[in-house]
């Protein structure tokens, strides 16, 4: 499953600069809003679902080389967060859906923990 398919199927808004998302296949999925847990538990090159939109999500995503961060509940990041994500080449995706719904849809698409 490519990131482009995930973006299309879940109708996600791409907040950061476009990349060739058809070339990215996330390694797994992790969901948490505690960044300390994410740093310990998320998969390298995986997807991360969270409603945190603080600038530290960019640092965590860069640290783990995540495929993308899916920000839920329409929790729109500040412009400086998006700028930093672009500098770090981190992809931020936004949805009005809650974390549970996003996780459920990804599971239905066949993505498992990793």
């Amino acid at each position: 499953m490519t990131l482009q398919e995930i973006i299309d199927r879940l109708n996600l808004t791409v907040l950061t600069e476009k990349k060739d998302f058809t070339a990215i296949t996330p390694s797994g999925v992790y969901a948490s809003d505690l960044l300390s847990c994410v740093m310990a538990g998320a998969h390298r090159r995986g997807l991360w679902i969270t409603l945190q939109s603080h600038v530290n999500i960019v640092a965590v995503a860069a640290l783990l080389d995540l495929s993308a961060v899916i920000i839920t509940e329409g929790s729109t990041p500040e412009p400086d967060v998006i700028q930093k994500a672009n500098r770090e080449e981190v992809t931020l995706l936004l949805t009005p859906a809650p974390t549970y719904t996003v996780a459920g849809k990804l599971w239905e698409l066949g993505l498992r923990e990793g």
Binding site: S36, M39, Q52
Partner: peptide, 9 residues
């Protein structure tokens, strides 16, 4: 701070 944001920017 450390649990929720991992570290202080």
């Amino acid at each position: 701070l450390f649990a929720n944001l991992g570290f202080l920017p």
